[in-house]
Design a protein around this nucleic acid. Sequence first.
DNA 1: GGATCTGTGTCAAGATCTTGACGTGAAGCG
DNA 2: CGCTTCACGTCAAGATCTTGACACAGATCC
Lengths: 139, 139
Amino acid sequence: MDVDSSIGYALKRTATALRTAMEASLRSLGLSVPQYSCLEILSARPEISNADLARGVFVTRQAMHQLLGGLQEAGLVSAVGSGRVQRYSLTPEGQRVIVAASAAVVAVEERMLSGLGAAERRRLHDDLERCTAALGERA
Amino acid sequence: MDVDSSIGYALKRTATALRTAMEASLRSLGLSVPQYSCLEILSARPEISNADLARGVFVTRQAMHQLLGGLQEAGLVSAVGSGRVQRYSLTPEGQRVIVAASAAVVAVEERMLSGLGAAERRRLHDDLERCTAALGERA
DNA sequence: GGATCTGTGTCAAGATCTTGACGTGAAGCG
DNA sequence: CGCTTCACGTCAAGATCTTGACACAGATCC
């Protein structure tokens, strides 16, 4: 097995490079990558539950619980406890932060894709989705 | 920022799905994904140092040190301490295990790529490499 | 209505990885 | 040669995430 020709290894390398670049870009805003992901999803889908949030960020419910605690303490997220399941939303401060963070991340993604045209980007996105779908089906 | 149209998010989803599938496939062999990665690189490049190994697996030297400790205890890896820097290689048992593990991982990758032809695979691999290279250049 | 089952929030424990720092060798340069 | 610089191995500490477990709410079915 040649490790350089493996697509799986290339995938890991790209994902690691992207994460590293995101960390560097978000550091000035005082956010970690999981924290940013959490805010981004919260921005797209307000009033969301802890468990749904955890699935979107690809962590366990427990990890998301800790993450939300930190974000609440920072005043970026507020909880609406109307029942047993608490639903979370961005505070005005959180909305302000996610706008800046999202712009920073978009810039990083743009740098990553700078060598690809619009059609190539669509193609890459489609290929990745096909790979994800193929892995989802139980063999 | 629509999270579904983001290539970065698609990348993370695919990488997570691949890792999960690899974990499931390697479980029967008693290996974790980092352990497998370590053995795979060790198989391709014997007599390698701890630090070089760490870079290949995308972890810190300290984490790799712990990892190697476990693999040595399992009898899969042996250390040749000819100087200050120790160099590591697979034991016969380790070679036997990596053959089986590599086959299992290749099968997972094949399932992931089952919807893509040979040309499409080359194209995807090339796109990923271009993305990694673009992120490597300091803005 | 009562029973079963799935999904959720939460607690505790443990494993894994990282950051930070130190001492030590090996190479590059005056 | 002596000095600097850099990379490596290693120790200690801390943060982060996971596994395992429990009680409870809501849905489904009889």
